[in-house]
């Protein structure tokens, strides 16, 4: 992130963290105190997270006040800024990575066969970041064939090593 944008980022993240700190504190206060069991008041479950919530709130408050001083509240969000942000190649690559990995890790694994899920993920990843149809790639068939081969080898090798060598029940 560019240093000039850091106060804006600090302004937003510190608000999120302050809300989080307060939420942890309130949740901890509401935890049972086991008075009916004559529990020691210092052993109640909410004491440690409550203290941590308060500390997170206080530290985030300092970041928040500092960002106010640096005029971080001037977020400058406009349609153009958002459009430029989404058109940025590195942002698109970041989002594509999170999406394809997220779909594999949270969606495919455990729902379909491990080997098939891994094959589909590796193939999708390779094609997503390597295949450029708009640039008239002269060797699309070779690229696709090599990607399929790598996907088969990765799924087969990783699955077999963990299943038969390390005796892990595959998800």
């Amino acid at each position: 992130m560019k240093p000039e944008n850091m106060p804006k980022a600090d302004f937003v993240t510190s608000i999120v963290l302050m809300v989080f700190g307060v939420w942890v504190l309130l949740h901890s206060i509401q935890m049972p105190r086991f008075e009916n069991l004559e529990a020691n008041p210092f052993s109640v479950p909410g004491i440690v997270p409550g203290l941590l919530g308060a500390i997170i709130f206080l530290l985030s408050l300092v970041v928040f006040l500092r960002s106010l001083k640096q005029k971080g509240y001037r977020l400058g969000i406009s349609a153009t800024v958002i459009r430029n942000f989404t058109k940025d190649a590195s942002i698109q690559r970041m989002l594509a990575t999170i999406l394809v990995c997220g779909v594999y890790g949270l969606g495919l694994i455990g729902r379909i066969n491990y080997y098939l899920a891994t094959f589909l993920f590796v193939l999708a990843f390779l094609l997503l970041f390597q295949y450029r149809p708009s640039q008239n790639d002269p060797r699309p068939v070779k690229l696709i064939a090599m990607s399929v081969l790598q996907a088969v080898l990765t799924a087969g090798a990783v699955g077999a090593v963990f299943r038969y060598l390390f005796l892990v029940e595959l998800p």
Binding site: C101, L126, Q150, T154, V158, V168, P171
Partner: peptide, 25 residues
Amino acid sequence: EKLMPVVFVLCVIGSYAIQARMFDI
């Protein structure tokens, strides 16, 4: 582009292998 999908596959199975819990992924 060729290395990172393999690394992620290892991250997934590595997280899962110790306790065999989908939650860990």
